[in-house]
Design a protein around this nucleic acid. Sequence first.
DNA 1: CCGCAAAGTGGACATTGTCAACACCGGAGG
DNA 2: CCTCCGGTGTTGACAATGTCCACTTTGCGG
Lengths: 219, 219
Amino acid sequence: MAMSRAYHHGNLREALVAGGVDLARTGGPAAVVLRAVSRQAGVSHNAAYRHFANREDLLAAVAGRCMEQLGRLMISRSGAVDLADQGQADEVQADEVQADEVRAAWARLSAIGEAYVDFAIAEPGWFRTAFCGAVAPPRKEAVGGGPGADPFAILSSHLDDLVRCGAVPAGRRPGAEYAAWSAVHGLSDLLVEGPLRGLPDAEVRVALSAVLSAVARGL
Amino acid sequence: MAMSRAYHHGNLREALVAGGVDLARTGGPAAVVLRAVSRQAGVSHNAAYRHFANREDLLAAVAGRCMEQLGRLMISRSGAVDLADQGQADEVQADEVQADEVRAAWARLSAIGEAYVDFAIAEPGWFRTAFCGAVAPPRKEAVGGGPGADPFAILSSHLDDLVRCGAVPAGRRPGAEYAAWSAVHGLSDLLVEGPLRGLPDAEVRVALSAVLSAVARGL
DNA sequence: CCGCAAAGTGGACATTGTCAACACCGGAGG
DNA sequence: CCTCCGGTGTTGACAATGTCCACTTTGCGG
């Protein structure tokens, strides 16, 4: 199994993508350079062409990883809300349970929105790479243990929850993902590479809460 | 008078920026290539270095032009709303005048939002260039007749109008530009270079109206 | 045991950003 | 009028990159 390191590198494709993710973290999509990732993998340039059609193809793979990273953070933050809530769940009326569920659904939506923006700010290189326009098709995730972390799907299911528990009228559901996603993504983009770059931290929080509450009202 | 007057070329700086805008239109920021714009201006490479510190500097100038272009479309669409409205303005009660003004203010906000997205769709190269992160400082526009077409300033003044005529409570004003701008910019970015690329036209209109009405409700 | 296709290598080429040294030109000062 | 001078533009060079090509090596399947 363990291939001799001389010629056949264990599985290169993986190493190349990992190296690309590394470079993208600090330099964004422009830093995902064929020769650089090859060098970093201890392999000479042109080796990558046995695994990717061209640079764009590699970038797409790297972008996919970044997107998954974002999805993972969103899921994790959403889960954290559930955990925090269940602490104070005790014996209460049935309708109070329902009210709590509504509140929790709203909190989860806010949490994934905040996660989105936080990710963009904390990892601008990854964020810019994820949305550099190199992502492949919708990416049908492997059914198994893979973290099916497509941000869009996550958002959709959270909106479904809001409708299901009556927090949002069903008539408002169509197009809701566009409204919510656009708002959060727009703020992220403006903060990371748009005219809002370098906005003071306090102002960032003001903007974030303004966007999130506007979305909540707007749904 | 060592003005930027004609020396050898005419005034090159202008020609270079214009050529850059040309290339950016079809190829986005990546197409703004020093040697290409120099070639297109009938001048050999390195001539540009007498007018710009480096490629990034030129790109910033080109990006500024693209941003102005966007601002101009927004202003023009906002003006078109006024003209369309004044046609049906006749003798009415005072409070109806007020109601009309409120309606017009909302219509103008919608118009600039729609203009933003339309611009992104119609001129993706320019849009991507405008927001590629190369724009110079906050750009203090000349107060006079110059096309003070900073999209952010335009949005701000429209929101001010909404507050002034009572359509939006003053308490909601802080942060409102973040909410509105983020929503519209996010949709544009997702449509132009994000996962929403290639969305069928009908669906685009659904998304746009969902975003615009959500913003209106959210303010 | 052998050959073959997959995996990796080395070299080459065009393109690009950038630097340095040089050439041109038109006006300022004599 | 002539002469210098700095702003403008040119030529040449260099390193880095994406990509094509021919070649080599490896290990698996017959």
